[in-house]
């Protein structure tokens, strides 16, 4: 720690911000009203079934398979998916919903706070498939939203070849607007939040070579959403 002092002792903040204010032709301001956003777009909230349809259609475009399942047959759906894709071992978190839905996977690897950084990353890299529960799903863009937690780290979502997100239908919202508003409400209320919020829309991809889409680059090569 003693070595850190010289680096951060002066972060230039005051002089830097004074200079900006001067360029803007005024004194520094310490109170600003954030303008209310007047956004275009649908104002009504579509019914869940319509949202499911929008989500399914969009997933076709983002190379993501959508499987409609239910809490009762979720285990079977996941088993079938794992078998079809040969994607073991399975990486899961300690999300209580795994227990709630009675999910078990043989030889599964667990991301858990107690295992520490290196071991958790090792497990994630050794796993073939990650299974995760979405915090929100955004119908328009085919996106799931997940937040980092002690039992579900950042690298959890990026190291396996196959990525399966279980989406509870009640968590589908029309688009990113609703998720952003809800998350910002939590920020404003000072609620504790994970250090990382991921909006994930399908598998990783790149068009850096001749603008031709390659599905699967650094992150997962394949993504599947299971609706329950």
């Amino acid at each position: 720690m003693s070595m850190q002092q010289p680096i951060h002792a002066n972060n230039n903040k005051e002089a830097f911000l004074d200079h900006i204010a001067a360029k803007l032709g005024r004194e520094r301001v310490h109170q600003v009203e954030r303008p209310k956003l007047a956004l275009p777009g649908r104002k009504d909230t579509p019914a869940t079934e319509e949202l499911v349809d929008i989500l399914k259609e969009q997933c076709f475009f983002i190379h993501t398979q959508v499987i409609e399942s239910s809490p009762e047959i979720l285990q079977q759906t996941l088993n079938d998916l794992l078998e079809a894709n040969g994607g073991g071992p399975v990486l899961t978190s300690a999300d209580p919903r795994f227990a709630e839905y009675g999910l078990e996977f043989s030889g599964r690897l667990l991301w858990e706070a107690a295992a520490g950084r290196d071991e958790n990353i090792r497990r994630a890299a050794a796993a073939g498939t990650a299974v995760v529960f979405a915090d929100y799903a955004l119908a328009e863009s085919g996106t799931i939203v997940v937040e980092s937690r002690p039992d579900q780290g950042r690298a959890f979502h990026f190291l396996t070849g196959h990525y399966i997100a279980v989406i509870e239908r009640s968590r589908i919202v029309p688009r990113s607007t609703q998720a952003a508003a809800d998350l910002n409400r939590r920020v404003m209320a000072g609620e504790p939040m994970g250090s990382c919020i991921n909006l994930i829309s399908g598998p990783s991809n790149s068009a850096d070579i001749e603008m031709q889409l390659v599905v699967g680059v650094h992150g997962p090569l394949r993504a599947t959403y299971v609706l329950i």
Partner: peptide, 22 residues
């Protein structure tokens, strides 16, 4: 790129207490 949202949109900061990576 003409995508509705890109595959990864991430909001991140310093690792929070208890989190293993980041």
């Amino acid at each position: 790129v003409g995508q509705k949202l890109t595959s990864y949109i991430t909001v991140m900061g310093p690792s929070a207490p208890g989190e293993a990576d980041g």
